[in-house]
Design a protein around this nucleic acid. Structure first.
Length: 776
DNA sequence: GAGTTTGAAACT
DNA sequence: CAGTTTCAAACTC
């Protein structure tokens, strides 16, 4: 069972990598763990146990990898020239060797450079060709446009530095997880340390964190050349390490963490974890490049599609980083104030991160589950993806430089419930949740990256000069929440009118708002305002779109498909066919809760929704068709769900994500614009994402298609209860905890959910899953 | 880019 | 709770 799942997860790679090596890697849990690293970092502040993060990360990592790969492509292409200039031409192999060494450090430093690079190199030619072909397409938006390339301006060296820093972060993510898995010793500490180290490095370099981030983002997104290379390099190393070493990793990890340290020149040799980090940071871009190259080689050989998928995934990773990597700590205020303007962009903010920081307790954080879903900012977006309810207010600097304020909203219901029931379990569940989130995010990111790659990169350019609206739209579409921008003039960005505020994100430069108080400087005001709003409406900041969640025993499972707008829309003239409609905007069908008139929501009409239960009545034609679609989809979903469960660590997919996917798809297809960030993402399980992506890559066409494919998630099952009453909403859940339970017993959840949920083990241990997967 | 439309949020 | 106003996004030209 697992194998297929894993394949899905890695699908992009796997496809690329038909080679047994990839399969092997996929099968190997450690690699996955590496992926998860990103997430773990995000959550570092929370101090999660390494293991969960590791597992969760795999998806993410994969995505990131894909993203990086893309970038690399660009960069490579561009670089090739640069390299020639710099005399780096010969570096590729050398770098490969170096990278191999670097990675090997963890395993066998000296030994394998060749093996890793060699295998990769063998593939390279084909891949490069494919990449060259594919890249242009993908890059069109970001890369092609000259504007998109801010990097070029920067000296190569500077870029490299930034890249390095950025890469270091990325690398950290990758590396750390692996390290964590392998060595585990330093887990939390190591991660934090690594983050610190990164920060230090960044500081040393003199580039602001924000700058770094923004640059990195730009580079990643738009810059094919240098930045891309850097990112690639950064990513690649991880990837390459994974790929080349993947087979080795498990063993090596066990053996070699120390070696890696020794091999890599860490600035500071803190611990194994640090060593890794350092390694990453230390690794020169060249090395990274080599790794990246090796990776490229490996991945691309197969099919363009695969390459695309990978690229998407990679991009997503990059995106994620942007959004997630930097968490603002309680210390943020200071840093933020200092940085105030940048909105977040200040390096200090980014620096604050886990160690310092702590989440500003907007509300009492139940658990520190780190899982804030970073991207969730949009009203709709806030989707429950997070599933976790961390109420903690986090400040995360988003790619755009915005910092998440956070609230992860109230989705806590599940967790809270669990916590109530079993404190011990809660931690576990949290981990699982985190895991879920991570993957989910990754998926989303993947989706986003796909779009972002095309669109997003461009968006950033606009930030500074472009017209706010356009920028915003592009950002929103391509970017994620983090990319959100508002244009508030009278609300001071302290009301829900403001998307940024509603999303729990600070306004950033790109925002064209006036008299904005939604900035770190005014953190107190923002928090106070939020409290007020929440006091009025606890669900105010809760995700508007709610996915169906089921709880089994102690664990909560996300039901795949169902997602509905919490509150329902009230559309009268838009027929729920435009973004005016929150349901439509959220990529979900209208539900009973909707009071819309003439509902024609492409994702599912109100009638249709009822129709599932009461189909005959409503718009039968549409409803019936949709239902059929849904059924088919559901079936597929069921399978997916099962698969997802295992691979992802049990944590069920967040319905939101799925809904997002559908939405995103639509938008992308329909408007050609990237779906909103929040919506983007997607499918809870990376697998789904990969699958979807694959499908989508070819498909994107009309929203309808997407709907058909994805719709399942949105329509149905839904959690009746969420829909039924806002009260039941997660937020309420936070208070009472009960809501989830209600959800769990979905009367409506006709079909699949139950099966899925049942199949999932209550608390699968990571190792357990892996094993189980293997057996399966 | 300006203006209009739309529906949520906020207010009464 | 319903009605009205305010607001900003979404949309159109």
């Amino acid at each position: 069972m697992d194998t297929p799942e894993r394949n899905r997860i890695c699908t992009p790679k796997s496809k690329f990598e038909d080679s047994p090596v990839f399969n092997y890697l996929n099968s190997l849990s450690p690699i996955k763990s590496v992926r998860s690293a990103n997430i773990s970092q995000t959550f570092n502040s929370l101090s999660f146990s390494s293991p969960p993060s590791v597992f969760t990360s795999p998806h993410v990592s994969s995505q990131k990898e894909s993203r990086f790969l893309r970038r690399q492509f660009f960069s490579d292409s561009s670089k090739s020239g640069l390299a020639s200039d710099n005399g780096n031409g010969g570096n590729t192999r050398v770098t490969d060797a170096e990278t191999a060494e670097i990675f090997n450090c963890s395993a066998d430093p000296p030994q394998n450079p060749d093996s890793g690079s060699g295998t990769k190199e063998g593939h390279l030619p084909n891949e490069s060709l494919e990449l060259a072909i594919e890249l242009p397409r993908k890059l069109k938006y970001g890369c092609d446009s000259p504007e998109s390339n801010p990097v070029p301006q920067h000296g190569y060296g500077t870029d490299s530095v930034r890249e390095i820093t950025g890469t270091s972060s990325s690398l950290r993510q990758f590396v750390q997880p692996s390290l964590l898995k392998c060595s585990c010793p330093t887990n939390g500490v190591g991660v934090q340390e690594t983050s610190q180290l990164e920060e230090r490095n960044d500081e040393e370099e003199g580039s602001g964190w924000e700058n770094m981030i923004s640059d990195a983002a730009e580079l990643l997104v738009s810059d094919p050349s240098n930045d891309a290379e850097a990112t690639k390099e950064q990513l690649d190393p991880n990837i390459s390490s994974l790929d080349s070493q993947a087979p080795k990793l498990p063993q090596e990890c066990l053996k070699g963490l120390p070696k890696t340290q020794s091999g890599c020149h860490g600035k500071d040799n803190l611990g194994t974890g640090e060593g890794r980090v350092q390694i990453d940071t230390n690794c020169t871009p060249q090395k990274l490049q080599s790794n990246a190259q090796s990776k490229k080689k490996v991945k691309f050989p197969n099919e363009k599609k695969n390459g695309k998928a990978e690229a998407d995934c990679k991009q997503q990773r990059g995106t994620r980083r942007r959004c997630l990597l930097f968490e603002m700590g309680g210390g943020q205020k200071r840093s933020l104030e200092d940085d105030s303007k940048s909105g977040s962009s200040s390096p200090s903010d980014g620096k604050v991160t886990s160690d310092d920081g702590q989440l500003v307790p907007f509300k009492v954080g139940n658990n520190s589950s780190p899982c804030m879903v970073p991207g969730i900012g949009l009203h709709l977006n806030a989707l429950a993806v997070s599933g976790k309810d961390n109420r903690m207010v986090k400040h995360e600097t988003l790619p755009s430089g915005k910092s998440l304020i956070s609230m992860s909203s109230h989705i806590t219901s599940l967790q809270s419930v669990e916590s109530d029931q079993q404190p011990l379990n809660t931690t576990f569940s949290l981990n699982s949740l985190e895991r879920d989130i991570g993957p989910a995010v990754s998926e989303d990111q993947v989706m986003q990256d796909a779009y972002q790659a095309s669109i997003f990169g461009v968006a950033e350019e606009f930030n500074e000069s472009g017209s706010p609206r356009k920028k915003r739209r592009r950002f929103e579409n391509g970017g994620e929440e983090s990319c959100k921008r508002c244009n508030c003039k009278k609300s001071k960005c302290l009301k829900l009118y403001c998307e940024c505020f509603a999303a729990g994100v600070y306004c950033v430069e790109p925002c064209s708002c006036l008299d904005c108080f939604n900035k770190p400087i005014h953190e107190d005001t923002v928090l106070a305002t939020r409290k007020q709003i929440e006091s009025r409406n606890p669900l105010a900041f809760a995700p508007k779109v709610i996915s169906h969640v089921a709880e089994i025993g102690e664990e909560t499972y996300k039901t795949p498909a169902s997602a509905r707008h919490k509150k329902g829309c009230n559309c009268k003239k838009s027929s729920c066919l435009k973004k005016y409609c929150e349901c439509f905007q959220g990529g979900v069908g209208c539900s009973i809760n909707c009071r819309c008139e003439g509902c024609k929501n492409a994702f599912g009409t109100k009638d249709g929704y009822v129709g599932e239960e009461i189909e005959p009545e409503g718009e039968e034609s549409e409803g019936s068709e949709k239902n059929n679609m849904r059924k088919s989809l559901q079936i597929s979903e069921i399978h997916k769900d099962k698969e997802d469960q295992y691979p992802d660590h049990v944590t069920p997919i967040t319905p939101f994500q799925i809904s997002r996917m559908s939405v995103q798809l639509e938008f992308s297809s329909s408007s050609g614009k990237p779906p909103r960030p929040s919506i983007f993402p997607v499918g809870s399980s990376p697998r789904l994402l990969t699958n979807h992506i694959q499908q989508i890559s070819g498909m994107l066409p009309t929203p309808l298609k997407l709907e058909k494919h994805f719709q399942i998630a949105a329509p149905e099952d839904e959690t009746p209860e969420f829909l039924k009453g806002e009260n039941s909403s997660p937020i309420s859940g936070v208070k009472t905890a009960s809501p989830n339970r209600k959800r769990v017993s979905p009367p409506l959840g006709k079909s699949t959910r139950k099966l899925v949920l049942q199949s999932i083990p209550s608390f699968p241990s990571l190792a357990f899953h892996d094993q189980a997967d293997d057996h399966q």
